[in-house]
């Protein structure tokens, strides 16, 4: 488990509009990488290209290469469905399936593609995934209740449990804490810290303290102005970005002078 991502000269489009320009970046395995930047700079758009969720939007497309341990995700004959089952995603707003119980939510990804799984195996997997998401103790007595009855923070951890149940190589998180209160945020951050032992984690965040707390490496994205494509401005160790940035705009952003 856990693979490295190499992105080479990636351009991302919505129809004719170029949203992200010329990104080249290497995301290390078994680490947490944070994407920061002002709203609209394309960091979420870029994140969604890493598991081919970008193309779900009509007219959206990419140019360039995304290599997962050397295999091009956009190569000819690569099925986006396979890509997405290898690269899990956690969204900005918790989105457990409202029509499923907590247990079924965890198993949702595992049961795809007509996979059969025995009762004993699935019980073990549900427990392992929920423990992995630090949620087991809170929900173990109500696994058959709907997932939408949980608090926001619990729902988000349920979504993480659902993502790790399929044992992906990489977990992408798109501002996973922006809809959560500080205590739930802390719970999710602790969880991210544990996840990096087994997974490659990429997290988009608006919260710079969060990036500083959870990540080893940080990428700063920015746009020159509205209508211009977003660009990767600077990428290095998180401590470097926050204490000793090379670029002036990075320094302005992390010190709170704009954005």
């Amino acid at each position: 488990m856990s693979k490295r991502i190499d992105v080479q000269d990636l351009n991302v489009f919505y129809g004719d509009f170029k949203a992200v320009e010329d990104v080249t970046i290497r995301v290390e395995a078994r680490s947490v990488t944070a994407f920061i930047g002002p709203s609209g700079c394309g960091k979420s758009t870029f994140l969604r290209t890493l598991n081919r969720m970008h193309e779900v939007i009509p007219g959206a497309r990419v140019e360039g290469q995304v290599l997962l341990d050397g295999d091009d995700l956009y190569g000819a004959g690569v099925d986006p469905v396979t890509v997405r089952s290898q690269i899990g995603m956690v969204f900005q707003r918790p989105n457990p399936f409202p029509t499923m119980s907590i247990r079924d939510n965890v198993l949702a990804g595992v049961k795809l593609n007509n996979k059969r799984i025995s009762r004993a195996e699935s019980d073990a997997l549900v427990e392992r995934s929920l423990r992995g998401a630090n949620l087991w103790k809170e929900v173990k007595d109500r696994l058959d209740k709907p997932g939408s009855g949980l608090s926001g923070g619990q729902q988000q951890r349920l979504c993480i449990a659902r993502a790790i149940a399929v044992e992906p190589e990489v977990i992408l998180m798109d501002e996973p804490c922006s809809a959560l209160d500080p205590i739930s945020t802390l719970a999710v951050e602790d969880l991210i810290d544990e996840l990096k032992d087994n997974y490659t984690v990429v997290i988009v965040t608006h919260n710079m303290q969060q990036a500083a707390r959870v990540s080893e490496k940080t990428a700063f994205f920015n746009i020159a102005g509205t209508g211009d494509p977003g660009r990767l401005i600077e990428y290095s160790d998180t401590t470097e970005i926050f204490n000793n940035p090379r670029e002036k705009s990075t320094e302005d952003y992390v010190s709170g002078r704009f954005g």
Partner: peptide
């Protein structure tokens, strides 16, 4: 999107 992101 939650379903698609799981590989559905």
């Amino acid at each position: 999107e939650a379903a698609l992101a799981l590989g559905a």
